[in-house]
Design a protein around this nucleic acid. Structure first.
Length: 517
RNA sequence: GGCGCUAUCGAAUAAGGGUUUAGUUCGCGGCCCUCUCAAGGCUGAAAUCCGGGUUCGAAUCCCGGUAGCGCUACCA
């Protein structure tokens, strides 16, 4: 029987989750759901220095907003899982709560000769690096240098025992084998080979906070949690040989997960990866949700900017992947059906804010009128409470083609809920001249005489009147719009009049004529 | 500097040796519609990084160069 697929998204709570991180989570989720497998959320908080309060909650809330719910992990089934149970056999899913697990694995590696204790202080290593730099070289802790450094490979056994017993002042480093070609396979990039001599003896156990580094914790947890595919960002590709070597050292090659490294999200312009600064500079969010850091600095979020989560997810899915067909609009459920790692693009994807807006507009168009009305009522509250669903529905239907975000409705539809308090001076200057002041009262009287007030009837009648009298169509219509809306842009005059109703139209026209006289 | 990854219109991408006059979407330009703004319809400009090789034939395979990106921490 085919093994159950299990993937994980393993972010560090060092700040708000970047949209690139959401994409990684999404691809993991899509892969798992398509295979009928499990999507696990694990928190990699082994860096106590960089821990940011609230970041974990932010990650969870972001994924929930996107409709991505883990099967296992700190947020399984919509609630936080703290301890292991039959349903969550691998809990806890926060590495800081798993600290007791890792030490014995590090020691196992030492016993088998795959790792060693290193006693060099941070100052000593820093000095070595500066010295190497002076000679335009880079100091590397590796096969070449470890024999002349302060570690359990060079110190006598009793001295090593004494130092280790002190419980501090040592790290554990992986002993990279000499001159070995590490052959790896990546689901997206294919076969990769690296000579082990270019690798360095990475720290597996940190003295600083008595915790494993990413490399150790990651391999141990992926093994223990029976992860079958590791889908992560490209920044991890350089450490893939180390991870292969670690699986080998533990003797876990047979159950080793397959790897897929995703390319990075790039800036819309210029060079480099997408950062918070680009969003501030170019005016788009790089985070799913609004975030306020400890200094009170605010980062905008897709949610608060008016994006529908479905549109955000759809847009993200297409940044570095495509279905191979011309369909671009996919629900999360549809994405689950068609997603494939083989169609993930190898090169970096430049983020395009315009395309993101387009996706949102498409979802705005697909939304039912009833949903639009409900959303609008929820965001506007008392201001529009006295208007009927039918009225609001007509208003939103008329405006939905003119906006990209539901958040734009408030301003765009304001005149339907309140008569204009002033008129755009430029429009007044442009239209309120020549014969218009004498024509408008006649138009007003004609409107007052209409018995039916449907869009078609009002439109045809008023246009007919203007044509019969050979009045300037544009000027008369725009002046009417000016009185109705307050400015000379907006939907068709007939549409506006039909929704506003005869009484309100006459009131606004009278007000306009009166105030400009 | 070292190691690795990547390279098609402005952007996202399609084309998996011949079906290619390199397609689609966003954006940009024009025209139509029109009372303005949108929307819509039609339409235009716009790309295989460079150089070698393999082959009857290369965007596609190989090599080199270049460029971009990533990594090079007791960060993840």
């Amino acid at each position: 029987m085919e093994k159950r697929r299990r993937v994980r998204f393993a972010p560090s709570p060092t700040g708000p989750l970047h949209m690139g991180g959401v994409r990684t989570a999404l691809y993991n989720y899509l892969y798992a759901k398509q295979a009928g497998g499990d999507f696990i959320l694990r928190i990699e908080d082994t860096d106590s220095q960089r821990f940011v309060p609230g970041a974990e909650e932010y990650i969870i809330e972001s994924l929930r907003w996107c409709g991505i719910f883990p099967d296992e992990g700190v947020d399984a089934d919509g609630h936080v899982v703290e301890v292991a149970s039959a349903q969550h056999p691998h809990a806890p899913y926060r590495q800081s709560q798993r600290r007791g697990i890792y030490r014995k694995y590090a020691e196992e590696l030492i016993e088998k000769g795959y790792a060693y204790y290193a006693f060099d202080t941070a100052e000593e290593l820093a000095a070595l690096r500066t010295a190497a730099e002076a000679e335009k070289k880079t100091f590397t802790y590796n096969w070449e240098t470890r024999g002349s450094l302060c570690n359990s490979l060079t110190l006598p056994a009793d001295e090593v025992a004494r130092r280790v017993a002190s419980e501090t002042g040592w790290t554990i480093r992986f002993k990279i084998p000499e001159n070995r070609v590490v052959a790896m396979d990546d689901l997206i990039r294919g076969h990769i080979e690296v000579n082990s001599n270019t690798l360095d003896d990475k720290v597996l156990w940190k003295r600083a906070d008595e915790l494993p580094t990413y490399h150790l914790a990651n391999i141990v947890d992926d093994h223990l949690m029976e992860i079958t595919e590791v889908i992560r960002g490209e920044e991890w590709l350089p450490s893939l040989p180390l991870h292969y070597l670690l699986y080998e050292a533990f003797g876990w090659q047979d159950s080793q997960p397959r790897f897929a490294h995703l390319s990075l999200l790039l800036k819309p312009d210029g060079k480099g990866k997408l950062s918070k600064r680009d969003g501030d500079r170019l005016g788009f969010p790089v985070f799913p949700l609004r975030w306020v850091n400890a200094e009170g600095e605010v980062s905008r979020g897709y949610r608060e900017d008016g994006y529908y989560p479905e549109a955000f997810v759809n847009m993200l899915a297409f940044l570095g992947w495509n279905p191979g067909t011309e369909q671009e609009i996919f629900s999360l459920e549809e994405l689950v059906k068609v997603f494939s790692l083989e169609r993930v693009v190898k090169s970096g994807a430049r983020f395009n804010p315009d395309k993101a807006k387009w996706f949102n507009q498409e979802y705005l168009r697909m939304r039912s009128t009833a949903q639009l009305v409900a959303d609008f009522r929820a965001s506007e509250g008392d201001r529009i409470a006295s208007f009927s669903d039918e009225y609001i529905g007509h208003v939103l239907e008329l405006m939905r083609e003119r906006v990209h975000f539901p958040t734009e409705f408030r301003e765009a539809t304001a005149f339907f809920f309140e008569a204009p308090a002033s008129y755009d001076p430029a429009a007044v200057a442009k239209f309120w001249k020549d014969d218009i002041p004498t024509i408008l009262p006649q138009v007003r009287a004609f409107i007052a005489s209409l018995d039916s007030f449907t869009k078609e009837h009002v439109g045809e009648s008023v246009e007919g009147l203007i044509r019969e009298n050979a009045w300037p169509m544009g000027k008369v219509m725009n002046t009417l719009r000016l009185f109705l809306v307050g400015k000379s842009v907006g939907p068709g005059v007939a549409d506006i009049m039909a929704i506003l109703g005869k009484e309100e139209v006459l009131r606004r026209v009278d007000e306009g004529i009166g105030s400009l006289k």
